[in-house]
Amino acid sequence: MSSSGYPDAGAGFLNTAVAVARKDLRIEWRTLESLSSMVLFALIVLVVFNFAFDLATIRELGVGKLVPGVLWTTLAFAGIVGFARSFQIESRSDAMTALLLAPVDRGALFAGKTFANLAALVTLELVVVPLSAVFFDYDLLAVAGPTAIVLALHTLGIAELGTLLGAIASRVGRGEALLATLLFPVATPLFISAVKCTAAVLDGGGLASASKWLLIAVGFDLLYLFVGLATFEYVVEE
């Protein structure tokens, strides 16, 4: 980052968030540590699901019955791998302390971390969703638009929760196991909504048939954006 890249003391919320996100994404870009493990893990989960439910079963039940569940379970599990790493990079050589020394709004740290996690999840989805179309034999191109909207709305909520709860799990020195225990119950409404919306889209019902679920997703995204911004400072504070 150039010398002008660091925000001045008390710099604006947005500048700080962007700086944190850029830092995280640059580390990720140069090491590919978290993304490679997320993608590989997701691939393995997809393959396991293919053994669990063979193509004949899926064709018989219809794509909308099985694929949404498979897809979101895969994304959630792979996401957890990424969220846990997002704070592991901060505990290495105690980078978190340095980050907290900056006189900036803690909410901005949350926003930046969330954005970096969101970007990682979206990258993961760009690989996993087309692959699932190949593995489970459905026509992704025909429903690409609505699928993208559904993915974006629900991925944002998962990234917010993953960042906040990932910070909590990392503060008590537990990784993926505790994070999964925290994330899955809290995200229950989001997963139900994600599966319902994806099923509606894959069954050709379009977004209109899932409008109330989209409402839950948007409400969930906004609520946890607010909760994250308001409570992140209590989580990271020394």
Partner: peptide
């Protein structure tokens, strides 16, 4: 501190979970 943050999340989540599962 961590339990308080989690307590707030849990309490806020209950009505949403109820509504989502109800639908």
């Amino acid at each position: 501190r961590l339990a308080s943050v989690l307590g707030i999340i849990a309490a806020l989540d209950v009505p949403i979970i109820y509504k989502a599962v109800d639908w």
